[in-house]
Amino acid sequence: MRPNALSIPRSASARHLPAVALLAATVLMAAVMPAHALRVKEVASVQGVRTNQLTGYGLVVGLDGTGDQATQVPFTTQSLANYLQQMGITVPASAQSRMQPKNVAAVIVTAQLPAFAQPGQTIDINVSSMGNAKSLRGGTLIMTPLRGADGDIYALAQGNVVVGGAGASANGSKVQINQLSGGRIPAGGQVERAVATGLQQGDTVTLNLNSVDFSTAQLVVQAINGRLGDGLAQAIDGRTIEVAAPAAPSDRVAFIARIEELALTVPTPAAKVVINSRTGSIVLNQAVTLGACAVAHGSLSIVISTTPVISQPGAFSGGQTVVTQQSEISVAQTPSALVQLPASPQLTDVVRALNTLGANPQDLISILQAIKSAGALNAELEII
């Protein structure tokens, strides 16, 4: 590994260096990025070892009058009638229209089936109301089949719903903490069918990197071939790596375990700025650098003031008192000076330079986009 120029302290002796030497050191600091050690299991996963999404439709019963309103959610009444029919109780069609099951709510049930899950194992269940139920607190989910993408049943769900919120209402007043229309059933699902995996099939095991990076793919190949044998691994592309594996199941599991524990010195990822346009959040990774630029950002505010004006008619005129609105509109623009931002080769310098603008996160999003368009922001902008 090359010596890291970032280890040069800004001591008193460094301040006496010529300006040209300091500029060269700054360019070298920006070019040489620190690396960090990771294991293979933290940058890649074994192909085929994955979870599967399950979903189902069910009913939550035992609610204290906080269930669905039958007049607005007719499928709840229909589902309840179908369930009763399966239990041997027939409800006439004329009576179904008069049912008011305020203690029942129609819900969507979701779960994740872990890799290698076997029949009899339990999984956690998420329950979400799909009608107008006020709360699922205190309810019980009756047996609900959970299906996969192929339509087959892989698990059954049932149990008491745990709701993390609370609320109360009376005489038009209402108070609520957290969400009441969704809950969770810990270990409420039971696996009924296992999902076959191709881990033991073929002569190779495929590793998939978490993100496309040719440098990381080459480092994984070098680590495997250097520690376990030359020629075992080869990179197919920037994400896929094929590794020759033993045929015996126990040997293959031990072989994969050894691969996952191999240490890597992964280089710093590509410079990226992630912007959440909905919340105004901005995240910069350590590779972001900033070139010298000048920024001026002003704010325009429009204020509308409305004053009620009462028009009173004369005495005995027979007129009526009229209330009118008088509005005043004023426009103010805050002056802003041109701020010069120096070149910033480190993340701390970039943050310090952006803080000098004194802009809020929403304004900072526009500033970063403008700096990127000007070619002074050495990073990729990603808006989520």
Results as ranks from 00 to 15, higher is better:
275 I>C: 02
229 G>H: 10
243 V>N: 11
221 V>M: 12
202 G>D: 11
196 A>T: 13
206 T>A: 10
186 P>C: 08
245 A>Q: 13
214 F>H: 09
172 G>Y: 07
169 S>M: 11
250 S>M: 09
238 G>C: 14
277 S>Y: 02
259 I>D: 03
166 A>N: 10
231 G>Q: 12
269 P>M: 08
226 G>L: 05
218 Q>E: 12
218 Q>F: 06
223 A>M: 08
267 P>M: 07
221 V>I: 08
178 N>A: 15
156 L>A: 02
183 G>Q: 03
235 A>Y: 14
187 A>Y: 00
224 I>G: 02
196 A>D: 10
238 G>F: 12
247 A>Y: 07
242 E>I: 12
250 S>G: 00
211 S>T: 14
254 A>D: 05
165 G>L: 05
274 V>H: 01
182 G>W: 01
231 G>V: 13
278 R>I: 01
163 V>I: 14
201 Q>V: 14
258 R>T: 11
188 G>L: 03
205 V>W: 06
258 R>A: 14
176 Q>C: 04
233 A>N: 12
223 A>R: 08
220 V>W: 07
223 A>P: 04
214 F>S: 14
198 G>H: 11
224 I>F: 12
244 A>N: 14
161 V>C: 03
172 G>P: 09
255 F>V: 05
208 N>G: 02
276 N>H: 03
165 G>C: 05
218 Q>H: 11
181 S>F: 01
211 S>H: 11
275 I>G: 04
189 G>M: 07
198 G>L: 10
185 I>S: 00
185 I>D: 00
248 A>Q: 15
158 Q>S: 10
193 R>F: 04
239 R>W: 03
192 E>L: 10
